[in-house]
Computed example of a mutant assay.
Amino acid sequence: MKLSFSKNGQAMPEKTVELPQSAFEKIEGTEVYWLGNASILINSRGTIILIDPILDSFDMPLLIDMPIKSSEIPKVDALLISHIDNDHLSFETLNNIKAVTQEFHAPAHVADVMIEEGFETQEHAVGNVFKVNDITIKTTPTRHNWQNQMPKYQYREWKEEEYVGYWLETPDGSIWLPSDSQLLQSHLEMPQPDMILFDFSDNDWHITYEGAIKEANTYPEADLLCIHWGSIDAATWNTFNGNPADLVNDVVNPKRVHALNVGGSLTLKRKQQN
């Protein structure tokens, strides 16, 4: 694990790796790319899934460079949005890839907002199952409706079902994005995933660090691809300032902790017990 540190001591990736056009071509297995913060690209045998992509106009200062210009993305089979927060949903990025994206998927309310912005979006309740080519995707529950506690956002009721995670069954194994969420009991009762897109933010509206360790050790064989760290310049903001090196001391089988460079990838490997 190679890390760098900001001038304020925030752990961050060593560098950004430029994402090549070959990342979108047909391949034999499944590669999972970290695009910074919570943005993920999955290439499963040529099927391209983007999750919460933000490659343009972050409204917060960044520690990283983007691995690709959104306008250079050649194809997207399905784009998944987990929730409406501005570090997960960028309409500038979506507009730049709209012409090459086959499908848009989002939970309640988020889908309505996306439709209003001109994106034909399929809405999914928690527990819904849908397919993208040979990938089966199921939405999983989260609890992240923090806006209800903030007077600025109390112009509506923010419902728990407007935030989802995603479970993806690919030909090469399972990938689970619990997404931004408090730890739920159901998060400890999932099938054994092969890879977790792992938020370990020590924040009360995220999983908390203690909760992250509990989740990780419930699934001791799953690869942990760290997200939601080292990207936004916020050394005093626990939502974004986790250090993946801490996980090595606390999780079972620490070699499965992966702190990628931005633009780096991890090969999905099916675990034998599955």
Rank of each mutant, 00 (worst) to 15 (best):
W176F: 12
L89R: 04
G118Q: 05
I68S: 03
K75M: 06
D112K: 01
E120M: 09
L41Y: 04
V100Q: 07
S70V: 05
Q149P: 01
N86Y: 08
P53S: 11
H88P: 02
K131G: 14
M150E: 14
W176D: 03
P107V: 06
S174F: 04
D112R: 10
H83I: 11
I64P: 02
N95H: 13
E160M: 14
I48M: 06
N43W: 03
M60C: 07
E162V: 12
R156L: 03
P74V: 13
K138Y: 11
D112A: 06
L80A: 09
I73E: 06
D112N: 12
I137M: 03
R156S: 00
H124C: 03
K152L: 15
I81M: 02
M60A: 11
H109C: 10
T140M: 14
A99Q: 13
A125Q: 11
D52R: 09
V129I: 15
I84E: 00
M60F: 10
A111H: 02
L89K: 02
G173R: 03
L55M: 15
W176N: 13
L94Y: 00
V110N: 00
L41C: 08
Y155R: 11
K138R: 13
P53T: 12
E157W: 13
V110I: 05
F58E: 03
I115E: 02
I81W: 00
S71D: 03
D134W: 09
A125I: 07
D112S: 09
D77C: 09
L168V: 15
N95K: 14
S174I: 05
D56N: 07
P171M: 00
I81R: 01
D52E: 12
L63I: 07
D134R: 04
T136G: 11
I42F: 01
E117N: 11
H109R: 10
T121K: 01
W176Q: 09
K69S: 13
T139P: 04
W158Q: 03
K159N: 12
